[in-house]
């Protein structure tokens, strides 16, 4: 990995840059190194897959890349900002403005309807509730569930909930969208549709999308596939390695 270029500050095409990212976890007496010095540049406008065996460190890496997990060593720049040099509150605010999340279990708030759930990042930003709701409803319509806006999450199918979660990740127009196993809970067709949707909506405005997945049914949709093995990137290319 010594051939990775140093940071090129001001290069607008670089969305994420990591240098020497190491992450250790301490379990009892033992300290395990989960990531062994990750150097990576992710360009804007790309759909990047992060694949690898269970326990290889995918979730750890994506968490560090989006600003929710501190690396033990190394540096992460998101759109030029050295995010782990920010204060706690600055980092939270940075995420609120720049990152959209899609969680595997959606984590929608059961007590508020689909539109309100999708509007959460705007409400958190302090946008007026009515306006936030209007923008969220518009986005739900674009995701073909405009007629479900008034329903509670429990009244929606899994796929519909997933779309609400996608709307929530996009509603504040973040520059980076991260998803951990977004299709694991869906059947093949729905999973593909979700990925198509992400390509279409997310990448439209030069956003970056990073997806952790096991789902080999959708590998063909990626712009770039990174393979992680025991905390090291062992493959980086447009297609999956032949022997995988």
């Amino acid at each position: 990995m010594s051939d990775v270029a140093p940071f090129a500050p001001g290069d607008p095409a670089t969305a994420i840059a990591t240098r020497g990212v190491v992450r250790d976890f301490t379990a009892g007496q033992q300290t395990i190194r989960v990531l062994h010095g990750i150097d990576l540049d992710v360009r804007a406008g790309e759909l990047t897959y992060l694949v690898g065996e269970s326990g290889s460190g995918k979730t750890t890496l994506i968490s560090i890349m989006c600003g929710i997990l501190w690396p033990t060593e190394g540096e992460v720049r998101l759109f030029g900002t050295d995010i782990y040099n920010l204060s706690d509150n600055e980092l939270v605010d940075f995420r609120l403005r720049n990152v959209g999340f899609i969680f595997q279990q959606y984590n929608l708030i059961p007590a508020i309807d689909a539109a309100a759930n999708a509007a959460v990042p705007l409400i958190a930003q302090g946008v007026d509730r009515g306006e936030a709701r209007a923008r969220a409803t518009e986005l739900l319509a674009a995701l073909n569930i405009g007629d479900q806006a008034d329903k509670l999450p429990s009244q929606l199918s899994g796929g519909q909930q997933q779309r609400v979660a996608i709307a929530r990740a996009l509603v504040h127009q973040p520059r980076l969208i991260v998803c951990d196993e977004p299709t694991a809970a869906l059947d093949a067709r729905s999973g593909r549709r979700v990925m198509d949707l992400l390509r279409e909506v997310a990448l439209a405005d030069d956003r970056s999308v990073i997806i952790v997945t096991h789902d080999n049914r959708i590998f063909d949709l990626a712009d770039r596939i990174l393979v992680l093995e025991d905390g090291r990137i062992t493959h980086d290319g447009r297609d999956m390695p032949k022997d995988y």
């Binding site: 929710i68 939270v92 609120l96 999340f101 959460v120 958190a124």
Partner: peptide
């Protein structure tokens, strides 16, 4: 989830 999204 709220904390990750950016609620301090």
């Amino acid at each position: 989830a709220l904390k990750a999204i950016g609620v301090n």
